[in-house]
Design a protein around this nucleic acid. Sequence first.
DNA 1: CTACCTTTGTGAAGAATTTCACAAGCTCAA
DNA 2: TTGAGCTTGTGAAATTCTTCACAAAGGTAG
Lengths: 200, 200
Amino acid sequence: MYLRYLEDLDTRGQKTAASDELAQLCGTTPAQVRKDLSFFGSFGKRGLGYPVHELTARLREILGLEREWKVVIVGAGKIGAALANYRGFKQRGFHVVGVYDNNPDKIGQPWGEAIVRDIADLERDVEREQALIAVLAIPSDDAQQVVESVVRAGIRAILNFAPTQISVPPNVSLKSVNMAMELEGLSFALTNAAGSKGAA
Amino acid sequence: MYLRYLEDLDTRGQKTAASDELAQLCGTTPAQVRKDLSFFGSFGKRGLGYPVHELTARLREILGLEREWKVVIVGAGKIGAALANYRGFKQRGFHVVGVYDNNPDKIGQPWGEAIVRDIADLERDVEREQALIAVLAIPSDDAQQVVESVVRAGIRAILNFAPTQISVPPNVSLKSVNMAMELEGLSFALTNAAGSKGAA
DNA sequence: CTACCTTTGTGAAGAATTTCACAAGCTCAA
DNA sequence: TTGAGCTTGTGAAATTCTTCACAAAGGTAG
């Protein structure tokens, strides 16, 4: 999140940013900003703040955004499309090397810059391409099976949009996003509203 | 999350579920399950577990899913489409009453069951329809402005997909989802991997 | 009815996270 | 060079969240 706003500031030519300013931008507190950043090192200059450009570069490095990551997208539906089209995606070094689906009507169809491939080839392709990240935009029922397949092929991180719990070996990172659950959280907040403000 | 899995169990006809079982399904611990549920009341039977059907109903009530929520989607791009098409959406009582965009090429076009409307009408429509939830699937630059408009019109909760921090009055709930940030989190995990397992 | 098994609900302990508050460091102006 | 004015980095305090562990309660078999 800090990176997101530091890049903005950098683009605008701002040279330094104090923890106060970053806190305001990110919706947190100055103390939190300082604690977070201090975890990775001592980047700031007392009396002045943090050097925007340097810190931006350092955070990119820490996050591993200096290299290119090969990504496969599984599921050629709307969510998959949204992700593949997402500008900030390639910009950040995430290179989509393949889109897969099991629907015969979709296989072979052009899809953005790529062509939808048969999910039967997924495992082989991941292995050949040495892709490390998989995005799952498929129905819940198929999720665990696909996970096992891509893990076997060498995938090391999974971003899961299927609204279900999936399990991965300890050496694979997993992050799940569940849109229905987000909305239900809002429903709860509205139902039990006593002037509650949601978190960002 | 508990609701998600309790519904599954209910469908399969299971009558009761112990905290142990729920924990396993949700990827947490039995103690956590019991603490979480006890916050809202005492639902279980000692020696037996939680009554699946009853608890399901109670959770729906707590989450405010018994009523219908009117939702407007702002931004007729891929993400907006993914959301509008999402089955679990209507199923959960979220009724999309309008889709808006500011692109003249899109306005008036059919879009699923609806027709894309002019964002200029958004404020008026929200007020007339008494919609309470807005989903923002628009570029960052437009986000804050749209927020102010819909809040003025009576929106009480916002699900934001724009990769930017937005601010809302204290009586409005806000939840942001940032796909780029999720991926960057995975990049970090991979870069600093020491057998790190990501959270669900 | 009793003895035993299971599982909840919950105080208390423990861990993690956030906030506080201030010494130390840097800049700038004169 | 000195002093005033900011701002960081960080121990300590406060708060929040998670786990432990066990009494109490329901179920079941005989």
